[in-house]
Design a protein around this nucleic acid. Sequence first.
DNA 1: ATTATCTATAGATCTATAGATAATGC
DNA 2: ATTATCTATAGATCTATAGATAATGC
Lengths: 219, 219
Amino acid sequence: MARKTERRNQQTEESRRKILEAAAEIAAERGYEGTSIALITKRSGFPASSLYWHFGSKDELVAEVIEHSYREWLPRVPRWQPPEGGAVDRQERQEQLRSILRRAGQGIVERPEFMRLGLMLMLERRAVEPAARARFLAIRREMLEVMSDWWVAVLPPEVRSARPGLAVQLARLNMAAADGLYAAAGTEVHPADIDGIQELLVLALDGAVAAVAEAERGE
Amino acid sequence: MARKTERRNQQTEESRRKILEAAAEIAAERGYEGTSIALITKRSGFPASSLYWHFGSKDELVAEVIEHSYREWLPRVPRWQPPEGGAVDRQERQEQLRSILRRAGQGIVERPEFMRLGLMLMLERRAVEPAARARFLAIRREMLEVMSDWWVAVLPPEVRSARPGLAVQLARLNMAAADGLYAAAGTEVHPADIDGIQELLVLALDGAVAAVAEAERGE
DNA sequence: ATTATCTATAGATCTATAGATAATGC
DNA sequence: ATTATCTATAGATCTATAGATAATGC
């Protein structure tokens, strides 16, 4: 019957998951090279041979850590749902952005592993790139696209047509500021200060749109 | 005579420097744990015992790498020299910021090691922190202070007195955006696109100031 | 018979040091 | 005598695998 198969599959899945959770914790603390098999066996309780049975190699295991921690993070990520019916006024744009950024911040606090490991991998410049790094970059490309689409939808129509590349630039700047803020959070930036800086980021991005709009009107 | 002493000191300094340069390259490519003694001996030409004679331990060596690469980077860092005679008008503020950020970007491109290794260390969360990490954070605190002072000097007086914490927040946001942009540069962001995003950052920060000023006037 | 885990270990690489040797300074 | 470098190696830790054992499914 399917029940026993399911139970076995469930146990297998559970072992995999435990190994990945332990590895994700360690990788977010110590980076790719610092994530040793010995540390994972200690924290997960499984012997090295089980890790190799499930994942084949350390490189593949860390790539799966990225994939797994991304899936854990995903439900906490804001949707970047463009507003119904296209363009919106300035205040509405600000409020949408504010609520999206707040949610993004919460998500990263609740599941920090994906971004922490991912940013460390992104900064690396090894001759042979870990599989996890390529995977992270691919996911980030998708994220940027979603953010760009939101900015396209929310930009005043005349600005959007006058400056076709602006939405991507805004998305990039938005992402860069969020990354940098996250990297500094918990060490350089006290958690209580995050909100104020995030609010300033909303005003800043909106102010940039206003400045570009004004410049276009002035030409 | 002092000449021979000098020559010896010079050779010693030269060995130290060669070791630090090799180590800085590797550390910026692979992070703290990836910077193995064996790799440094290969790239520098000196045996492991020479590294230990000069630096005592790997932890101390990497801390000196941070210190050394910072000193190499320092002359390329913009001064954040506040304008003579205090406050300036909006256009002048924008132009100063633009020129400072451009210079900061160039400096990071010419000597990327300090920021690359530093950000990787900053993201780590080891139980026992490497000495290099503490050193990087101390340097960054100084940098933030310098940036804050600039923002204090450049803010409209009525905004500065109405919102005493604003300058630090602007400095933090400025730093976060620069960090994030740097982390993405070369992989996610094409070098040719940096300028446009940086220009947008200038408009954004200035726009945030304008928005706060307007809000204060409106109260 | 297949799947998953265990113990045990191979062989490479890691940090660090001992002790010999060479170069410099007094 | 002091300073700096060399060769050689100790002992810990690294990734990975062989082969035995246990659990599950047919």
